[in-house]
């Protein structure tokens, strides 16, 4: 593995174009187990990128590195030109203060495989909590905003329900509302339908499809090839901790050029 120094920045010309999300040369190892090797991905505003690949290919770790749930060992992440989690002072890279990282994370929504709704709060409070604590909205205003976002995912009727009273699909829609309510610059989805019963997958995918239609910038780690083909602009195939192939979704999924992509697609079809 080539170790890329942490201070790598986007090249001058690219920085000027300023993609919404720019992950450069991300490397990550857990102990001696190398999970990511030099993974780079730029996402333009309004673009929907799907990341597919076999389990253990590093795609979830890559997503978690983007919002610093995992701290990458190499490389860096920029959102609208602002570097996430680190700052350079006199050529030395430092962690940013935790309050700064919290603000940066608030600009990136994350939707988890296992929903991770706050178990002690109702659906509307799940959405309103960060509006109150992070965006400092008054209680009533936060509640109204939360209700309107819940309505946009069709969950306003369940505003008073607790996560334990909701189906997996309903929980995931609330989780999406919780992320969307913060008006993030980019939404990250970590296998959002993998923990769902098959008949509940559709309701979550259709919510994600309509978000994409509204111009939300999204990075989606998924096994849903149909969603990747129909909704995403670009599909990235990862294997063994690096990007094997990427391009227009129709091309990558329809006529893949790499043997490993072909083999993977033939297995999951």
């Amino acid at each position: 593995m080539t170790v890329v120094p942490l201070s790598v920045r986007p090249a001058e010309g690219e920085a000027a174009m300023q993609p919404t999300l720019s992950a450069r040369h991300i490397g990550k190892a857990f102990g001696t187990h190398v999970v990511l090797t030099d993974v780079s991905l730029d996402v333009e505003r309004g673009e929907v990128v799907c990341i597919i690949g076999p389990s253990g290919s590093g795609k979830s770790t890559f997503l978690r590195c983007i919002n610093f749930l995992e701290v990458p060992d190499a490389g860096g992440v920029w959102v609208e030109g602002e570097r996430i989690g680190c700052q350079e002072v006199d050529g030395v890279l430092w962690e940013v203060p935790s309050a700064v990282l919290a603000r940066q994370r608030a600009a990136m929504g994350m939707v988890f495989q296992r929903f991770n709704l706050f178990g002690h709060l109702t659906a509307v409070d799940n959405v309103a909590l960060a509006l109150r604590l992070v965006k400092r909205m008054p209680r009533q205003q936060a509640r109204e905003r939360a209700l309107s976002v819940l309505a946009s995912v069709g969950m306003d009727r369940f505003a008073g329900h607790r996560p334990s009273q909701l189906s997996g699909g309903q929980q995931q829609r609330v989780a999406i509302a919780r992320a969307v309510a913060m008006e993030p610059k980019v939404l990250l989805f970590d296998e959002p339908t993998s923990a769902l019963d098959p008949e509940l997958v559709h309701e979550v995918l259709s919510v994600m499809g309509s978000l994409a239609g509204q111009g939300m910038t999204m990075v989606v780690v998924t096994h849903e090839i149909g969603f990747a083909r129909e909704v995403s602009n670009r599909t990235v195939f990862m294997d063994g901790g690096s990007i094997v192939e990427q391009g227009q979704s129709a091309q990558v999924l329809g006529q893949p050029s790499e043997a490993r992509t072909k083999a993977f697609l033939s297995k999951i079809k």
Partner: peptide
């Protein structure tokens, strides 16, 4: 569950 704190930091809680 650790997912609870991950979800909480992902929406920007300190």
């Amino acid at each position: 569950d650790s997912g609870q704190s991950e979800a909480a930091v992902s929406v920007g809680l300190n």
